[in-house]
Simulated assay, not measured.
Amino acid sequence: MTLTIIETGLVPEPLRGRFRPYPEMFSTMLARHGAGTTPSFVPVLEGAPLPDPAKLDAVLITGSPAGVYDPLPWMDPLRDFIRRAHHSGTKMVGICFGHQIIADALGGDVRKSEKGWGLGRHVYEVVPDHPHFAPGIKTLAIACSHQDQVIAPPKMAKVILRNQFAPNAGLAYAGGRIMSFQPHPEFEDDYSSALIELRRGKVSQDIIEAAQDSMKTRSDSAILARAISRFLTG
């Protein structure tokens, strides 16, 4: 199965010598956790055209520093791509910005949250009985890095991951062909910590220190990665 990864963001320039691009992070994550996919990258930031989603096996939309409200030339074409993918029943996964733009394109409300920055390892409640999570999993601790949030999901979406900071952190869409998440299972801990440090001086010292301290919590990224793999290949 070919997984078309829509690259909507770049690793921040100060970190590019140390860390791989986001599509490669996802490719590594999925290879490690058994998705059995062949990746194909679409760098929309470089002007790459979006393919016909009806001809694709599956799609993954990456994170980005952009917000859905930014007037970027690739934003409306991506919304149209998402709507056509939904109409054609193409499997689709969104992470962070990907989670937000899917919700935005399909009728949800996405904005910069009044709660400010979510940084570090957050613990999320897993809504019971979702088929892509193994039975008995009640919480997941996953790294996040965002200001924007899905404030109101589309009517066709059900919340499957949540916490007090981000009540709509995971969504599963009617029809079983779209799933998206606010946190980043593709991030290794050293990259998450480096991102936190980049915010130093821009975010309060208390938030930075709490975020770095939270990285001591054991990561459940592998559990979420396996759920995404099962979704893509199931």
Score class of each variant (00 low, 15 high):
Gly120Trp: 05
Gly120Arg: 01
Arg121His: 02
Arg121Ile: 00
Arg121Gln: 04
His122Trp: 02
Val123Met: 06
Val126Arg: 10
Val127Ile: 09
Pro128Ala: 09
His130Lys: 11
His130Asp: 02
His130Ser: 04
Pro131Arg: 11
His132Phe: 12
Ala134Ser: 03
Ala134His: 06
Ala134Lys: 12
Pro135Leu: 00
Gly136His: 05
Gly136Gln: 07
Gly136Phe: 09
Ile137Asp: 06
Ile137Cys: 05
Lys138Asn: 14
Lys138Thr: 15
Lys138Val: 14
Thr139Asp: 12
Thr139Glu: 14
Leu140Tyr: 09
Leu140Glu: 08
Ala141Trp: 01
Ala141Asp: 02
Ala141Gln: 01
Ala141Tyr: 03
Ile142Lys: 06
Ser145Ile: 09
His146Ser: 06
Gln147Pro: 03
Asp148Ser: 07
Asp148Phe: 10
Gln149Cys: 05
Gln149Asn: 06
Val150Glu: 05
Val150Leu: 10
Val150Pro: 01
Ile151Trp: 09
Ile151Arg: 14
Ala152Tyr: 06
Pro153Ala: 01
Pro153Thr: 01
Pro154Leu: 00
Pro154Gln: 03
Pro154Phe: 05
Lys155His: 08
Lys155Thr: 09
Met156Asn: 14
Met156Val: 12
Ala157Phe: 04
Ala157Glu: 03
Ala157Tyr: 13
Lys158Cys: 03
Val159Tyr: 09
Val159Gln: 11
Ile160Gln: 03
Ile160Lys: 04
Ile160Thr: 01
Leu161Tyr: 02
Leu161Asp: 01
Arg162Glu: 12
Asn163Gly: 04
Phe165Gly: 12
Phe165Cys: 03
Ala166Gly: 05
Ala166Trp: 00
Asn168Cys: 11
Asn168Pro: 04
Ala169Lys: 03
Ala169Met: 03
Ala169Glu: 01
Leu171Gln: 07
Ala172Asn: 09
Ala172Gln: 11
Ala172Arg: 11
Ala172Met: 07
Tyr173Trp: 13
Ala174Pro: 01
Gly175Met: 11
Gly176Pro: 13
Gly176Ser: 10
Gly176Gln: 12
Arg177Pro: 07
Arg177Gln: 14
Arg177Trp: 15
Ile178Lys: 07
Ile178Trp: 07
Ile178Ser: 09
Met179Trp: 05
Met179Cys: 08
His184Asp: 13
His184Ile: 08
Pro185Gly: 03
Pro185Trp: 04
Pro185Ile: 02
Pro185His: 00
Glu188Tyr: 15
Asp189Pro: 04
Asp190Leu: 07
Asp190Glu: 11
Asp190Val: 05
Asp190Gly: 05
Leu195Glu: 11
Ile196Gly: 06
Ile196Glu: 02
Glu197His: 02
Leu198Asp: 09
Arg199Asp: 08
Arg200Ser: 13
Lys202Gly: 14
Val203Leu: 03
Ser204Cys: 07
Asp206Gly: 14
Asp206Phe: 14
Asp206Lys: 10
Asp206Arg: 10
Asp206Ala: 15
Ile207Ser: 08
Ile207Cys: 13
Ile207Gln: 06
Ile207Tyr: 02
Ile207Glu: 11
Ile208Glu: 08
Glu209Arg: 06
Ala210Arg: 03
Ala211Thr: 10
Asp213Phe: 14
Asp213Ile: 13
Met215Lys: 02
Met215Ile: 07
Met215Leu: 12
Lys216Glu: 13
Thr217Gln: 10
Thr217Phe: 01
Arg218Ala: 15
Ser219Glu: 04
Ser219Asp: 13
Asp220Tyr: 07
Asp220Arg: 04
Ser221His: 14
Ala222Leu: 12
Ile223Gly: 03
Ile223His: 10
Leu224Trp: 13
